[in-house]
């Protein structure tokens, strides 16, 4: 590493150096605080609930309930991450992809007595078709993803009502339920491990490969990525398709967990999934949507809800807790920063 002979340009380096140096303490403080903020609150929450209701909250049963009970949401969150990280901030249709997958499986398995494995594959296939439709209208025609996926979500929801006759369909093969929910490993239902496996793949690809790095650049500055030779539209297409496929898997898990499939299955899950993704973006790598942060966020929200319910809160406390946590997580770091900046300006 031969440093260039001519030394740094003498006069202006000083001026240039000052600016970032001034900003440095606040950046580090902010990062240090923010990065692990959710984990700290998470730990505090567990201690608080644990002290209050040790018998129920700190039981294996509750752990199993939290980890297993949120597996469907957890898998859907991994689906939501993919298009979101590429800068296509909403794929609203992922919830209905989940519903379509579950309903296809249920209708084939229950009403047409199709083999459950074939029905599962068909369910995932149906979800992938939804993803392809999104690609066609969002990427190929360069439309706003919000508008297109809003339309596609509505259409798919309508299709679910048609194929189900607007009824819950069940009960799906107990084989499936066994492999998803009833059997467990270390007292935690198997579906949690499926979610964990999907998480590990998504996490590895997004955080530890050039593919993930490119996805990040596409999400942060699409034009920079394009002019660096990245195949932007191909990557976005894959994100929509794989996202839909993972949502389809979430649909299978949903059917296996509940036994019967409700026509409105996916629509109630999509907003909590987005809440977890955006809440996760405030942790581990602040400002970046990341898989590990999303994992923590999902179980932070699940544990919080479970604790409140054990304390006697009603079921709908979940919605309030999710919404409040999300808004608080994105606001608190900003409020902090502005206060710091104002002080500095006044000084």
């Amino acid at each position: 590493m031969s440093a260039p002979h001519g030394a740094a340009a003498p006069t202006d380096t000083e001026g240039q150096q000052q600016e970032p140096e001034q900003a440095r303490p606040s950046v580090i403080r902010r990062l240090g605080l923010q990065r692990y903020a959710i984990l700290i609150v998470f730990a505090a929450m567990i201690i608080a609930f644990g002290a209050d209701i040790p018998g129920t909250f700190l039981s294996i049963g509750n752990l199993s309930n939290i980890l297993g009970g949120q597996a469907v949401l957890f898998i859907l969150v991994m689906a939501v991450i993919l298009p979101t990280i590429m800068g296509d901030f909403v794929d609203l249709s992922l919830g209905s992809s989940l519903g379509l997958s579950a309903m296809t499986l249920a209708v084939l398995n229950v009403q047409h007595h199709t083999n459950v494995v074939v029905a599962c594959v068909a369910g995932i296939g149906a979800a992938v078709v939804v993803g392809l439709v999104n690609v066609f209208f969002v990427v190929y025609f360069d439309n706003d993803p919000f508008i297109v996926t809003l339309g596609v979500m509505t259409i798919v929801q309508g299709i679910i009502y048609i194929i189900s006759g607007n009824n819950s369909v069940g009960i799906v093969s107990t084989n499936l339920s066994d492999w998803v929910f009833n059997n467990s490993f270390l007292q935690i239902p198997l579906e949690f491990y499926y979610g964990l496996a999907i998480f590990l793949v998504v996490w590895y690809v997004l955080s530890f490969t050039p593919v993930g790095q490119r996805a990040l650049v596409i999400g942060q500055s699409r034009e920079v990525a394009r002019l660096t030779g990245v195949r932007v539209n191909r990557a976005r297409s894959w994100a929509f398709i794989l996202g839909a496929a993972i949502a389809g898997i979430a649909g299978i898990a949903y059917a296996g967990t509940n036994g019967t499939v409700d026509p409105t299955a996916g629509s109630s899950l999509i907003l909590p999934a987005y809440a977890a993704v955006f809440l996760g973006a405030t942790a581990i790598k602040p400002g970046r949507i990341n898989a590990l942060g999303a994992l923590i966020a999902v179980y932070f929200l699940a544990a919080g809800t479970a604790g409140l319910q054990l304390l006697g809160a009603a079921n709908y406390i979940q919605q309030i807790f999710y919404g409040a946590a999300l808004v608080a997580a994105v606001t608190i770091p900003k409020a902090n920063r502005d206060r710091i900046f104002k002080k500095r300006r006044a000084a």
Partner: peptide, 13 residues
Amino acid sequence: QVYGLSEHLALWE
């Protein structure tokens, strides 16, 4: 700022 560098990434990235 629009076409050259992704501003929110670290410089090394």
